[in-house]
């Protein structure tokens, strides 16, 4: 779903007001940056630093480390249940959109799925920036009413008897799903375990698998 495609549809299908300011986002955003830079209100190098942070430093590997530690260390797992913000901060992950963390544990009975139906709330400190689908209407509209249908689109079919708990992030709590540890991973190190934990498994649109974690997003 490219942004250009949407703008094309918008301009030609909706006659309410012909708003061509947004047909070229590259130009629009460049103009905005130029105006604010000329006014001395922003530092373009700060934008570079923000982008670099989220491209290279803050991403789902942070969350995978948290999960692997929880799988390996019962004390840490208990701390994560009681005070996720502090437990996660002890590994060095804190800050913007991770100020108030909650960890929700999948069990043999219950699968957890996280959504923000009202906007795009997401635990940036442990998962980085959200993927496009997480912010798009299809996921936000259906996760709360048809989670099994949504999961099927991710290739995940849960047993019919498994309970599904959907967490709608309507306040400032940010949720990290702790998937179940896959069988056959006894004796693996934390680093090896972390490789089995995908971003989607920590949102709840996947589970952790012993064999194919590396290929998954």
């Amino acid at each position: 779903m490219s942004a250009d495609h949407h703008h094309h549809d918008h301009d030609h299908n909706h006659g309410h007001h012909h708003d061509n300011r947004y047909t070229d986002m590259q130009a629009r955003v460049r103009a905005l940056e130029t105006v604010l830079t000329e006014k001395g209100l922003i530092d373009p190098a700060a934008i570079d630093a923000i982008v670099e942070t989220y491209e290279t430093k803050i991403g789902p590997r942070n969350g995978a480390h948290v999960v692997a530690k929880a799988w390996s260390d019962p004390d840490f797992s208990g701390w994560l249940k009681r005070d996720a913000t502090a437990a996660i901060a002890s590994l060095g992950y804190a800050g913007r959109q991770g100020e108030h963390m909650r960890a929700v544990f999948n069990t043999p009975d219950t699968h957890n799925l996280v959504v923000c139906t009202l906007c795009s709330c997401y635990p940036w400190s442990v998962l980085g920036l959200p993927p496009v689908w997480y912010k798009a209407p299809a996921y936000r509209s259906r996760a709360v009413i048809d989670p099994r249908g949504v999961l099927a689109e991710f290739g995940l079919t849960l047993p019919e008897t498994k309970k599904i708990r959907v967490w709608d992030s309507t306040a400032e709590l940010r949720y990290l799903v702790i998937p179940e540890r896959p069988e056959g991973t006894e004796g693996m190190s934390e680093d090896e375990l972390a490789k089995l934990v995908s971003r989607d498994a920590m949102i709840g649109t996947a589970i952790a698998r012993a064999e194919s974690g590396k290929k998954r997003p």
């Binding site: 955003v29 940056e33 209100l41 922003i42 934008i47």
Partner: peptide, 9 residues
């Protein structure tokens, strides 16, 4: 740039 501008502002 849109991300950085939003956070900067």
């Amino acid at each position: 740039r849109a991300l950085g501008l939003t956070l900067s502002c």
